[in-house]
Amino acid sequence: MNPKPYLHPSAWKSEDVSSNEHWIVTLDAQDINEIDKALAAVRSRSLEIPQLSKDDFVVPGVALKMREVLRQLEEGHGFALIRGLPIERYSKVDAARIYWGLGAHLGTAFAQNAQGDMLGHVRDLGADWKTEMKARGYQTRLHLPFHNDSTDVVGLLCLQKAKSGGASRIVSSASLHNEFVTKRPDLWEVMCQPFCVDRRGEESQGQKPYYVTPCFNYLDERLFVRYNRTFIESAQRFPEVAPLTAAQLEAMDLMDALCNDPVYYLDMSFELGDMQWLNNYVVLHSRGDYEDWPEPERKRHLLRLWLRTPGFGRLPAPFADRNSDMTAWQQRPRPPVFDASEIAAELAH
């Protein structure tokens, strides 16, 4: 395969998107009225997550905005932010119903871990992903390096903000790919070769504790980037995994340097009620460390969705192994809990 730039709207730089916030979709009073009516209908029928479907959450006007969000995710810049949901008006249970209902207009929710959690809680449990091999980034307040998740789209809803810090930072992995192509085609070739990635204790019976995939993948003239250096390096703990080569380390060093270059990244603050949506194949995300409030009810709290969207019916063959994990997790979907002690117990497992 010859290296060539990926000429697509998803290959953006900071200046392309920071000066024009067309990626922010604002909900107006009419939208909120539609959402409230849909929520009332859901409550009257006692519909709960994960059974709640797109057809159950009827919001004709908002659905048009969600259609534009989906177009941006699949065909445009690869990210969007929905703003304007008056989150303080809703209980956490109802906020989750709204979030799930709107997400259903983008795609189908997928389990996020081996416990089958369909709606994830992002809260600090004091975990340390650097030293605890089963710890996940959403269980800690520590800085998270740039990475992407394992499904088409990841979404976050802000229920509570941190006392300070915790800002989201995103970068176009498509744009970074193009830098490899034009400036270091030798390292582009390295990124197209397989890397071993740690499953972090979430393998199914009979599976290896790691999966294998290139960082740069292609299918149907489309680019698919998969990058998580933390999990690539932690896979080195397995004796059967070959040591990373000097070229692989150099390629990842270049990837990280580009990720952290202000020319490429976009900072995105979360306001209460904001919903961020990212296309994992062309966007990498990071988060700064943060200071939390001492009161449990005020602690930073986001809800997370992993979605399969219609435009990604075909995926590169190397993704099949990791996707088999999520397919297995999907067989035992676990409804979300909202009591603080139950959330902590759920995340601890």
Score class of each variant (00 low, 15 high):
Lys4Met: 12
Pro5Gln: 08
Trp12Ile: 10
Ser18His: 09
Ser18Lys: 15
Asn20Ser: 13
Glu21Phe: 02
Val25Lys: 08
Thr26Glu: 03
Asp28Gly: 08
Asp28Trp: 13
Ala40Trp: 13
Arg45Asp: 05
Glu48Ile: 12
Ile49Glu: 01
Pro50Cys: 11
Leu52Lys: 03
Asp56Phe: 09
Phe57Trp: 05
Val59Asn: 00
Val69Asn: 10
Gln72Thr: 04
Gly76Asn: 00
His77Met: 13
Arg83Thr: 14
Arg83Val: 01
Tyr90Met: 01
Asp94Glu: 13
Trp100Phe: 10
Trp100Val: 01
Ala104Trp: 00
Leu106His: 10
Ala109Thr: 02
His121Met: 00
Val122Ser: 10
Gly126Val: 08
Ala135Trp: 04
Gly137Val: 11
His143Asn: 10
Pro145Cys: 04
Asp152Pro: 06
Gly155Cys: 14
Gly155His: 02
Leu156Thr: 09
Cys158Phe: 00
Lys163Ile: 07
Gly166Asp: 05
His177Lys: 15
Lys183Met: 12
Pro185Cys: 09
Pro185Ser: 11
Pro185Met: 13
Asp186Cys: 05
Trp188Cys: 06
Glu189Tyr: 11
Val190Asp: 05
Cys192His: 12
Gln205Gly: 12
Gln207Ser: 01
Lys208Gly: 02
Tyr210Leu: 05
Tyr218Thr: 04
Leu219His: 14
Asp220Ser: 14
Phe231Pro: 00
Ile232Gln: 14
Ser234Trp: 02
Ser234Phe: 09
Gln236Pro: 10
Arg237Thr: 04
Phe238His: 05
Val241Lys: 00
Ala242Thr: 15
Leu244Phe: 06
Asn260Cys: 12
Leu266Met: 14
Asp274Ser: 11
Tyr281Met: 13
Val283Gly: 01
Ser286Ile: 03
Asp292Thr: 05
Trp293Met: 12
Glu295Gly: 02
Pro296Arg: 04
Pro296Ser: 02
Arg298Lys: 15
Leu303Arg: 09
Leu303Gly: 06
Gly313Thr: 06
Pro318Gln: 08
Phe319Gln: 13
Phe319Gly: 01
Ser324Met: 06
Trp329Gly: 02
Pro335Asn: 09
Pro336Gln: 03
Val337Gly: 07
Phe338Cys: 08
Ala340Tyr: 04
Ser341Asp: 15
Ala345Lys: 07
Ala345Thr: 10
Leu347Ile: 15
